[in-house]
Nucleic acid binder design. Structure first.
Lengths: 179, 179
DNA sequence: GCCACCATGTAATCGGTTACATGATTAA
DNA sequence: TTAATCATGTAACCGATTACATGGTGGC
């Protein structure tokens, strides 16, 4: 069976309740987007493909003249999801971190500016933290345990990241004055 | 001036010493690849482009019949690098984390398996840690401060990540027994 | 003589994002 | 009536990876 990047997202989201393509996009933009994005250009073709393969089942849910098609997971789809969830995993974390790349080359800069890069990385973490806190404080029922876990991860990671930057900033500054 | 994903890598690496395309690929695979990869298909065309723009300067360094061309940074190239380093930065960290995506959907699994995902994430961090420690213990002179800083980040991040998984594992297990 | 490594380069492919087209419904 | 949101869909574009082609050099 063919797997693209959105396959698990679609199957995973449909595991809890039936959704339309639009719904999926909306939910992704409010949740997984931070570590796994998805665009309409992937979602709609994928829904058709998965339906053809019998992993999801579409039903018309039009509202008057506005078309709407909601999909739900078939037993085969649920199996595929579980198989993916428990399949051997590749490298855990894959990141593409421009701020880290800048730091990596920061020796080319006067010390002051280089330390400035560390400071702005710290700020980046803090800003991200605000966004995540806003999401965490959103009204609505309590999230399932593991959805909540991932949000926690985001918050904890950014708190750790900001702290780390601060510590390194202090270390690099004290080293300079000591030498 | 046109910027691609490898532009800063090429300029940044050439800032310290002249290198060939092959050298750049080798260094990237041993360093930035963890957060910023680059392939030959990007590097060689980019070297030509940057030379045409006058940001780098190529010189023949053939060894007998084996061709080899090394590039060095021009003053204009150095300026461009510094400009990039100090330009306003977008979102700090961008990650694509499959293991996090699995966790996000782990509520679809029996508790035991879901916790297994957390454990394997922990293992992923530990394995990554070993790789990074091996790199840190490589012979060779001390790295420049900020190159060292980024390596430290990798180590600290994975240590934090493994610890976090362990803590959450304990929390989720105790919650289960308490309820 | 063979294998590992040095070294350059490109064509084909693939996957994803962007941008657009289209139109209905609802609340201000 | 107008703006925001709901809703589906695709074509064009872009950028990166993969895979291949080609060949020299050095050590065993």
């Amino acid at each position: 069976m063919k797997q693209t990047a959105v396959t698990p997202v679609v199957l995973g989201l449909l595991a809890t309740r039936p959704l339309s393509g639009y719904d999926i996009k909306t939910i992704v933009d409010r949740s997984t987007r931070f570590f796994w994005a998805a665009s309409y250009g992937q979602i709609y073709p994928e829904l058709k493909r998965l339906e053809q393969e019998g992993l999801i089942d579409g039903a018309d849910a039009s509202n008057g003249n506005r078309g709407r098609r909601v999909y739900e997971l078939t037993p085969a789809g649920h199996e595929t999801l579980v198989a993916w969830l428990t399949s051997p995993t590749g490298p855990a974390v894959e990141l593409r971190d421009e701020s880290l790349l800048r730091l990596f080359f920061a020796d080319a800069l006067p010390r002051e500016y280089a330390l400035g890069l560390l400071e702005s990385r710290k700020r980046g973490h803090e800003e991200f933290l605000e966004v995540l806190h806003a999401i965490a404080n959103l009204p609505g029922g309590k999230d399932p345990d593991f959805v909540d876990l991932v949000l926690r991860w985001g918050i904890d990671f950014n708190e750790w990241g900001a702290r780390w930057c601060q510590e390194q900033l202090e270390r690099l500054q004290s080293e300079k004055t000591t030498s």
